[in-house]
Amino acid sequence: MSLLHRDLLLHWVLRIFALLASLIVGLIAIFLIVESFPVLNHVGLLAFFSDASWHPTEQLFNLLPMLWASLMVVVGALILSIPLSLLSALFCEFYAPTRLAVIYRRIIELLAGIPSVIYGFWGLVVLVPIIASIEAPGTSLLAGILVLSFMILPTLTLFAITAFHNISQQQIANSMALGISKAGFICHVILPLARPALLAGTVLQTGRAIGETMALLMVCGNVVQTPSHLFEPMRTLTSNIALEMAYAMDDHRSALFVSGFILLLIVIGLVILSNLLVKEPNDTHTV
């Protein structure tokens, strides 16, 4: 077999695999559209945003409260976890003594590996009763935000640590030679340089947070409403599918596929957003 031949073979094998991977996404999208079609045909897309409430067995299909709830819990979790992850990554990379940094990193990696249902169970057994003692019923937007923050925090931190680590030693040496203070070095050299990688990591974790189902199902109370404060229960789009799919029939079942399709659109939007953010020219930041 000539070298050219082998390359050609590899070329096609890779092409086929790439095609398979992209086909799966396409097939899922088609499947969601086909399954959503019956209810869209009966009540139209507008019903999902203008109906009085979400009572699918009574032909009321308003998804908006769950859409808002999904966004609120994710935004809340990001607001909590982004600063924490950045600070702990900075500590690990630039302040901690080497031995401590290694141990710290291992602990964070361990946290990142805990399955989400464990975070959910912990939230239900520990967090919810604590919140309930402040204001009943405990299962609430706040519980959702906290559990979700703990879940995405470790991976966000690992992303940040890697991003800081990949900044070339040359840059670091250059800034040291200029005698910049450590704080100035971090604010004006490290953070701007690491920005694209940090953004990419954040967008990926946002996708994970929006898709999170079981943990939020356990701690959020699952009442369909737009929460007006932190202690009110709420239901996310994903929890809605998990909670009702097993028992749903006809239009109800179809309506759940519509909520799945909306989730897919949100994730597609996030991917586009991350591309736009990461593509931004960043060579202006050279020291």
Binding site: A52, S53, H55, T57, E58, L60, A136, P137, T139, G221, N222, V223, V224, P233, R235, L243, A246
Partner: peptide, 13 residues
């Protein structure tokens, strides 16, 4: 009752 009339604090499976 209709489910719309119910004002729950928690909904479960």
């Amino acid at each position: 009752l209709k489910n719309q009339q119910i004002k729950p604090d928690i909904v479960i499976g």
